[in-house]
């Protein structure tokens, strides 16, 4: 096995393209576990953290660009990012312990393509765009299209995601992410749910996105759950309809982390609770 730490995105892409079985190392909080367990045996590990600027959070055209080397802890410490996208940040900050937070990255979480990835639903709900670098140049792709199935992404050989772009927040917008775990920390989500809302001048919901995690082979955009919120003030009736639609949209499995029935029930509960928080935030009230 080889270890390489290129300093430019182009060098990283050509290293990745030249090797049949190469792995990108960002935070390493997933890759190193798999390496030790013998689940992966790559010929090469490409550490992308020495690429200039890859650890930056930058304001861009009113939105935010988050580099692939940005630790989730660094996202949590960025006040302006947290003010615009509290839901995205709380998703990122729920991954692992304090120690894991110091290393793990949102883009690594995305590229693992784990169905229960905590940071992905809120990114998708926000309409985030991945900036993909590959041997043939760069391309932009919606974050929703990156994971395909458990452990599999749509990235081609040699491609990696250098950054993710969160579009401008705009006025009267708010998001939230909630997950359910058996303990208070250190678990993989049994259910995750992100809600992203924009309000009209009259305080009713104009645009909504409800995205579910851990209840399907990849994140699920629960369009009917979102539609249930449009035009409402997220009153109890709207929230109940949203919850019911979210439960209906969930397609979970029975496993060691929960049953189908449990996950479907809790999906609705979290959708209702997350929508309420997102609405409060969109109105500019504290939550």
């Amino acid at each position: 096995m080889r270890f390489e730490a290129p300093t430019s995105p182009e060098d990283a892409a050509s290293l990745l393209a030249a090797t049949d079985n190469a792995r990108v190392l960002a935070g390493g909080t997933d890759l190193l576990v798999r390496l030790r367990a013998g689940q992966v045996e790559p010929e090469m590990i490409v550490d992308i953290k020495r690429i200039a600027g890859i650890d930056a959070i930058t304001s861009e055209d009113g939105g935010w660009r988050i580099g692939a080397g940005v630790s989730c802890a660094a996202m949590g410490e960025h006040d302006a990012l947290g003010a615009d996208y509290p839901g995205v940040v709380e998703g990122a900050e729920l991954i692992g312990s304090t120690q894991v937070q110091g290393r793990c990255t949102m883009i690594g979480n995305l590229c693992n393509a784990g169905p229960a990835a905590d940071s992905v639903p809120a990114m998708v709900a926000a309409g985030a765009i991945a900036h993909v670098v590959g041997p043939k140049g760069t391309r932009e792709a919606p974050v929703f299209e990156i994971p395909v199935s458990p452990g599999k992404t749509s990235l081609a050989k040699g491609e990696f995601i250098a950054s993710v772009y969160l579009p401008p927040r705009g006025a009267r917008g708010g998001d939230a992410y909630l997950r359910f775990i058996p303990r208070t920390e250190m678990d993989i989500a049994a259910v995750g749910c992100a809600v992203n809302l924009s309000l009209a001048d009259d305080g009713t919901v104009e645009k909504a996105s409800v995205v579910l995690g851990a209840v399907g082979p990849k994140v699920i955009e629960a369009a009917e759950a979102a539609a249930a919120l449009i035009g409402t003030t997220c009153d109890d009736t709207a929230l109940a309809a949203c919850a019911e639609a979210a439960t209906a949209a969930a397609t979970p499995i029975d496993d060691k982390r929960g049953t189908v029935e449990f996950r479907k029930d809790v999906t609705g509960v979290l959708a209702r609770r997350a929508a309420r928080i997102a609405y409060t935030r969109a109105k500019g009230e504290t939550s």
Binding site: L25, V33, R36, I45, D47, G102, R103
Partner: peptide, 25 residues
């Protein structure tokens, strides 16, 4: 696997699990 914290160290001022960092890094 980063679940117990018994290997905690500081790396460039960040608290990390040293089992989740490669020596080469």
């Amino acid at each position: 696997s980063g679940d117990c914290g018994a290997c905690s160290v500081m790396l460039d001022g960040r608290l990390v699990c040293s089992c989740l960092v490669l020596g080469a890094e």
